Simulated assay, not measured.
Amino acid sequence: MDADTPEVVAHHEAGHACAAILRGGASITSIHLDPVRPGYGMTHMRAKAYADGGFIAWAGCWAEARYRWGDRPLDQDDDDGLEFVDHVQGVLLEQPGDRADVIEQEENFARLAAMAPGDEIDVRAATIATYQVWHIELEQAWPAMQRVAELLLAGATVTDAQVRALVDTAVEAN
């Protein structure tokens, strides 16, 4: 599947938007697919300092990979022997802005670990555990991401209130 298709971009942006709402520290000001530059989109938000930029950035990549993964069970390998998380990391490598936010989050883990008194904290294990929690949160919101992407592809203006309602419904259903 071509990374520049409107469907892929719509899911990527929907991932950012839904993740921002999941964490409660942001409001969506606009989400759009760029009509001039196919393959580009943008999610704008107002976020508080604690809004978890790494999670929001990773969520766009996660949603793009999730869309590409299709209906295959997430706990199975693909035809090349890759796991779903390998696909998320692949998308992350293609997205320098998102990657920078995720790396900043990882560096924050390392700084916090260095300040922790007593036993050393395994930063790699903590990072992997964080990604596992993020995956669970995002899978719960996947139906909301799919609907936001559908709305974007239909040319609709997607509002903060719509994203909130879709995320709330998806999370309550799980």
Rank of each mutant, 00 (worst) to 15 (best):
E106Y: 09
E7R: 01
H32T: 08
E64D: 10
E94H: 12
A26F: 00
G54M: 02
E137Y: 07
A20C: 09
Q95T: 08
L92N: 02
R23C: 08
L22R: 04
A51P: 02
R68Y: 05
R46M: 13
A141K: 00
G24H: 11
A65P: 02
S27Q: 12
G118T: 09
I28H: 01
E120M: 10
D77I: 12
T29R: 08
A49W: 12
V9M: 04
P38S: 12
R23I: 12
K48R: 13
L112A: 14
E94N: 14
I56R: 02
L22Q: 01
E104F: 14
R68M: 12
S27P: 04
Q89H: 10
G25F: 00
G25Q: 07
L112W: 08
I121F: 07
E83A: 14
P6C: 12
G25N: 02
A129C: 10
W134A: 00
D86T: 06
L92Y: 00
A110P: 03
A49Y: 07
Q140D: 14
G70T: 11
L22S: 03
I56A: 00
V9Q: 01
A14S: 07
A125G: 07
I28A: 00
A126V: 05
E13K: 05
G54A: 03
H32A: 13
V88R: 01
R68I: 09
V88I: 06
Y131H: 15
Q95I: 08
V8G: 06
Q132N: 13
A17T: 05
A59H: 02
E64T: 08
D71R: 14
Q132E: 13
I56W: 05
G70A: 07
H32E: 12
H32Y: 08
L82W: 11
R99I: 13
G53N: 06
M115K: 15
Y50S: 14
E13W: 01
L22K: 02
Y67D: 03
E94W: 11
D75V: 08
A14C: 04
A14M: 04
A26V: 03
A10I: 04
C61P: 03
D77A: 15
D52K: 05
G24S: 07
R46Q: 13
G39H: 07
A47Y: 01
P73Y: 09
Q132Y: 10
L93W: 08
V36T: 14
A125Q: 13
F55I: 01
Y50F: 14
H87A: 12
W62D: 02
G39Q: 06
G15D: 01
Q89M: 14
M115R: 15
T29Q: 08
T43C: 06
A141I: 04
R46S: 11
L82H: 13
K48D: 08
I21R: 03
G39T: 04
E83I: 11
A51H: 04
F84S: 03
G118L: 08
A141G: 02
Y67G: 04
H16T: 07
A57M: 05
S27N: 09
V36S: 11
M42K: 15
D78H: 06
D78Y: 10
A19N: 03
R68G: 05
L82D: 11
D71L: 11
D98R: 10
T127F: 09
V85L: 12
H11Y: 03
G60Q: 03
A10V: 06
I136K: 15
A14E: 02
L82M: 11
V91N: 05
F55T: 00
M115L: 09
A14Q: 01
E13Y: 00
V133H: 10
D34S: 10
R99N: 11
T29D: 09
D75K: 08
A10C: 05
A26N: 00
P6N: 10
